[in-house]
């Protein structure tokens, strides 16, 4: 029983990062109806920004070898700053890979290619500048906090996991309040509902799309930093796996549904944690098996609206 509780804690904390990541996917999908395949690369940028802002030095293989940011910022400052950096990257991706196609009303297939091209460029720029090596964040980030908190009955939670849960929870809370209460949030929902009508009603849909990219990329950047904190940065390509798993989360919850992304993230995180150690090699297939079954049984996902067919 305690073992199960421990697995649940592990699953929920990893699921929370999946959820943060997938929220970004779903925000962009809801306003544009396309998937941003550069999202994984932006996530990777967030992880590297976090590493640099914490004062980490660049390894020996990149062009920037040996350099480091002059300040070593505390974690709770570095993380949001890294998110802002990632948001800037997201805006850049929107400007080069999405805006030119959107103006022309191009078919969705092309967005897939251009956004992936942008992702390839970002990942390889990181490799060029910082090398292909793995980076671990500095070890003493938690200061006087213990690394592990005991919850009794042999169940424990790593302080990093707790932090991850808290940050993810706060980010989701703010996002949902903002989406439902603020005028920008409502404008975003209006564009998601029907872009043309929203424009007729005087909503600047171009600006709203940029806003969606900025928020989505901010969330990706933060989750990149959090994942770097909890495992480490496996190299410039480490975001790609998350990017694909994020697709699983997105489909499971329902494309374009924000609560669905959160639910999907938690379900896949927990399901992965419950895979027995003997079968751990198959763990990475769990998200995709869920995704596949969901698409066959209920394409609109758990909380999504069914896609409409024109007649």
């Amino acid at each position: 029983m305690d073992g199960l509780l421990q697995l649940l804690i592990n699953g929920i904390s990893i699921g929370a990062t999946y959820a943060l990541f997938a929220l970004g996917y779903t925000l962009v999908f809801s306003v544009l109806g396309v998937i941003n395949f550069a999202h994984g690369a932006v996530f990777t940028c967030g992880a590297y920004f976090t590493y640099l802002l914490l004062g980490g030095a660049v390894g020996s293989n990149g062009m920037l070898a040996g350099m480091h940011f002059p300040l070593a910022l505390p974690l709770l400052v570095a993380l949001p700053l890294a998110g802002i950096g990632a948001a800037a990257m997201g805006l850049l991706v929107e400007a080069v890979a999405f805006k030119p196609l959107r103006r022309r009303g191009a078919e969705p297939l092309l967005y897939l290619i251009t956004s992936l091209g942008a992702g390839v460029i970002l990942v390889n720029l990181i490799q060029l500048l910082m090398g292909a090596e793995a980076y671990a964040l500095p070890g003493n980030l938690l200061g006087r906090w213990p690394a592990v908190l005991a919850l009794g009955h042999g169940v424990q939670i790593r302080t990093v996991q707790l932090l991850l849960l808290i940050v993810a929870g706060i980010a989701m809370l703010i996002l949902s309040l903002w989406l439902n209460r603020s005028s920008y949030g409502k404008a975003l929902q209006a564009v998601a509902e029907d872009g043309t009508t929203a424009r007729l009603l005087g909503i600047n849909s171009g600006a709203i799309i940029q806003l969606a990219f900025a928020i989505a990329s901010f969330l990706a950047g933060i989750s990149g930093g959090l994942v770097a904190l909890s495992v480490n940065i496996g190299g410039p390509y480490f975001g790609i796996g998350y990017g694909l798993k994020g697709l699983g989360v997105l489909v499971l919850g329902g494309l374009g549904s924000a609560p669905g992304a959160v639910l999907g993230g938690l379900i896949i995180g927990i399901a992965e944690a419950l895979v027995p150690a003997k079968l751990s090699a198959y763990k990475d297939a769990v998200a995709f098996a869920f995704l596949f079954l969901m698409l066959i049984l209920r394409p609109q996902g758990l909380l999504g609206k069914p896609p409409m067919e024109k007649v």
Partner: peptide, 23 residues
């Protein structure tokens, strides 16, 4: 499945196939 849903389902197929074959 239509459009992007089909694309995602086929991505999932490839990922599952790889994990199963590699494991």
């Amino acid at each position: 499945l239509r459009g992007i849903y089909l694309a995602i389902a086929t991505i999932a197929l490839v990922e599952i196939l790889r994990v199963v074959l590699l494991s």
